[in-house]
Amino acid sequence: MSAEIQVRVNGKSYESQIEPRLLLVHYLRDVLGLTGTHIGCETSLCGACTVLLDGKTVKSCTVLAVQASGSEITTIEGLSAQAPTNGNGLHPVQEAFWEKHGLQCGYCTPGMILASVELLRANPNPSQPEIRHALSGNLCRCTGYQHIVQAVEFAAKKMKSRKR
């Protein structure tokens, strides 16, 4: 059995015939070739597969592609188009992760960045405990999280100054 879906991913429209059981993460990675979204745990715990679905973070390993039909999706590849950049093509949160050494192996990073983007949208001035709480759905095995927390603080500052 196959189903038809239409989605907009990173501002581009796609129509595909897919099996209804196809997971969104596999659709993005294998059908559209957007491999920046990673698979970490498959049980919606680690957050490596986080994408923005109609502006909200979801774990794309636990969403069927058919459920996303008609939606707007942003993956790490399309993030920089979402915010004013410094002319270097990077979203301020991406810049901040770079600046503060918020990543090592980089595998959790796309999900971590997208979760941070959602956090800063909801709470532009988060405290450290708020950052840690908001990122508790994203696991990182390398950094010990501290540089990630600093990166989010740095991004918050940066985004505020850019808005002015």
């Binding site: 920046g36 979204t37 992760f97 770079w98 990543l103 990073t109 796309p110 960045i113």
Partner: peptide, 19 residues
């Protein structure tokens, strides 16, 4: 120094085996 490997990693442009 900021890491040279980061730009590809933070933009989803790096390639792991499954990619």
């Amino acid at each position: 120094l900021k890491r040279k490997e980061d730009p590809r990693l933070i933009q989803g442009l790096a390639h792991y085996v499954d990619d």
